[in-house]
């Protein structure tokens, strides 16, 4: 299916994504509260939903301070990079038939490229702060993201082999009969783990491990710049959920309900799952994270690709 989106659709997708992100902050705090047997924020408005507005007011009115010892230009650019790369990733996500921004014939690789560029945000933020804890956070981020990127890409190649295309739209169309999660179950698992590590969410939030290195790469950030890192993380969560939905959970396919609702439901379920991970799992040690990645995930992704390739050829 070939598809060319209009500027209007692009703006709509952008608006939808940007309104979803602050809502997610509230959702995460409420869900975490429920799973940890407490209330979470429930004072501002019905169910505490206006907490979002209170948080925004707080972040926007805080003093936006750049430390005198920081490297100014890099310090300012770093938070922008994460927002930019995450929003660019949304360009290749097919939401429903006819709703999306662009159909690239290298769509899947475009997503991988953007997620690998996203690593710069964290790394440069950590470096430019000129603070030893930030530097440690940045170093951890660099090695973590570059390692998990390798088998993030490899785990998706099974899907590509089965579909015979890098286009996200073709991949969704190919899942009409059966979702990719059934034949590509191991690819799905590896991608999900790598996705959590790529957006450095708990339990893989080692670059910002607050019990060890203050707040890691964003220790020195305040005000709106901190807010951009924060929103970038939530947007990253949505983009990984949306891409997983597209590649493994059949995209917009599903009975009875309209396609866009199916896409939204699946993405929402995955986002809730990511939040559950945060509520349920402890943070591993850094060397545990690395050896888990290289000794378990990489062989698994390679074996998955090998078997998929063999089956497709035979």
């Amino acid at each position: 299916m070939s598809f060319q989106g209009s500027a209007l659709l692009a703006i709509l997708v952008l608006l939808g994504v940007f309104t979803a992100a602050p809502g997610l902050i509230w959702l995460e705090r409420r869900l975490l509260g429920l799973w940890q047997d407490r209330y979470g924020p429930n004072r501002v408005g019905p169910f505490g939903i206006f907490q979002v507005i209170a948080d925004m007011v707080k972040i926007l009115t805080k003093e936006d301070w750049i430390p005198p010892f920081a490297d100014r230009p890099v310090f300012v650019i770093a938070p922008g990079v994460i927002i930019f790369t995450v929003l660019m990733s949304f360009a290749v996500v097919p939401v429903a038939p006819g709703i999306g921004v662009v159909d690239l014939n290298v769509g899947l690789l475009f997503f991988l490229a953007m997620s690998s560029l996203g690593a710069y945000s964290v790394v440069l933020g950590g470096w430019s702060s000129n603070n030893k804890y930030s530097l440690l956070g940045g170093l951890r981020a660099a090695s973590q993201m570059i390692s998990y990127e390798v088998f993030m890409g490899l785990s998706l190649m099974g899907v590509v082999v089965m579909t015979g295309s890098f286009s996200m739209w073709d991949i969704v169309m190919a899942q009409q009969g059966m979702w990719n999660i059934v034949p590509q179950f191991f690819g799905f698992v590896v991608f999900l783990v790598a996705g959590v590590a790529e957006m450095h969410r708990l339990p893989f939030d080692i670059p910002e491990a607050e019990s060890e290195i203050v707040a890691g790469f964003h220790s020195e950030y305040s005000g709106l710049k901190f807010g951009m890192f924060f929103v970038g993380e939530y947007l990253g969560m949505v983009v990984v959920a949306a891409i997983t939905t597209t590649l493994f959970l059949g995209g917009w396919h599903g009975p009875w309900l309209p396609p866009i609702v199916w896409f939204g439901l699946k993405t929402f379920a995955l986002v809730c799952f990511f939040i559950l991970l945060r509520a349920g799992l402890p943070r591993p040690r850094f060397d545990q994270l690395m050896s888990y990645g290289w000794k378990v995930m990489l062989p698994l992704a390679l074996a998955n690709l090998l078997v998929t390739g063999a089956i497709v050829v035979l």
């Binding site: 991988l112 490229a113 690593a119 530097l135 170093l139 090695s143 570059i146 990127e149």
Partner: peptide, 28 residues
């Protein structure tokens, strides 16, 4: 050559340059 373009970003800009930055950070 969209394929080469994306690989250029993934491999050079996304992986090798991150390693360069990593080394620069270690050198302090």
């Amino acid at each position: 050559a969209p394929f080469v373009a994306v690989l250029e970003i993934i491999i050079y800009a996304g992986a090798i340059m991150v390693l360069f930055v990593f080394v620069m950070m270690l050198l302090n």
